[in-house]
């Protein structure tokens, strides 16, 4: 079952006014793999993520997730189906502590509503302490234990990135969409992040990664999709992409010119 398709984009299109930001994009992600999306700035990677996660509606095309059509669903419903994501610029809940951020990430794993919470029914207390315990464990997994009670706005940039990633993992998703998680990190942090992503994959979470750091992408990806001006330029294994003349021309070759 390792090559079962978990996520599939079928002919996605998105226009912003006259700009064709995503053009007829088809691709699929296999379960348990790390798939990366690369492409120059403005290629439409983030827009593609927004289409997949339901943040913005597509002009045409469909998204299938775990065999279900999700393109008309709201982001919260898609998340509840098991898709988590992070943002290119971190979007933590700045006034909440790290632990609270993670616990908020376990929203769909818990149930207490207005009335049960208001009455503080015994089962909500059990649920709450269970949620807290699982969140602590997750923070330990991410080596974030020392920041547990820190308010998010006081964290260093690299830590914020990690917390956002941990918060997304708190959903226990089937697939995790990471938008440039290494942006702004130094080499050591990037290296640590690579290992972390592999460890997340080992938990059984499929990963779709947008990243500019080429060595990292080549290192950890099982498969790579190259976007250019909104369209798919190439798709294949890392070593195939490295050798692909089109890719070298528009993307990797940029530096050499």
């Amino acid at each position: 079952m390792s090559d079962a398709v978990i996520l599939e984009a079928q002919g996605l299109n998105k226009h912003f006014g006259g700009l064709h930001a995503v053009r007829d994009v088809w691709f699929s992600v296999q379960k348990g793999k790390i798939k990366s999306i690369i492409g120059p700035n403005g290629a439409g990677k983030t827009t593609l993520f927004n289409l997949l996660s339901g943040a913005i509606p597509a002009d045409s095309g469909r998204v299938m997730f775990k065999g279900e059509l999700i393109s008309s669903k709201k982001p919260y419903a898609i998340a509840a189906l098991g898709m988590a994501r992070t943002y290119q610029t971190t979007r933590l809940f700045e006034h909440m502590t790290v632990l609270e951020n993670i616990m908020a990430g376990r929203h769909i794993k818990t149930k207490a509503g207005f009335i049960a919470s208001a009455l503080r029914l015994p089962w909500t207390l059990r649920e709450e302490s269970d949620c807290k315990k699982k969140s602590r464990e997750l923070l330990t997994f991410f080596s974030l234990g020392e920041f547990i009670d820190e308010t998010a706005q006081n964290l260093a940039f690299g830590i914020k990135r990690k917390v956002e990633c941990a918060r997304a993992c708190a959903l226990e998703p089937d697939i995790l969409l990471l938008d440039e998680p290494a942006a702004g990190l130094n080499i050591y942090e990037t290296k640590e992040l690579s290992q972390l992503i592999c460890r997340i994959r080992d938990l059984g979470i499929t990963i779709l990664l947008v990243e500019h750091d080429m060595s990292m992408v080549m290192d950890i990806s099982d498969e790579i999709l190259v976007l250019n001006e909104g369209a798919v330029l190439a798709e294949g294994l890392p070593r195939e992409i490295q050798k692909n003349p089109d890719v070298i021309r528009v993307y990797l070759g940029e530096d050499e010119c």
């Binding site: 943040a55 998340a79 933590l92 503080r120 709450e128």
Partner: peptide, 21 residues
């Protein structure tokens, strides 16, 4: 409670809250 956390999350960043379900 969980509800209070959800409310503060919405206050903090409504889109991010949505992406958490």
């Amino acid at each position: 409670s969980r509800v209070g956390r959800a409310l503060r999350a919405i206050h903090g960043n409504e889109q991010a809250a949505g992406s958490l379900g």
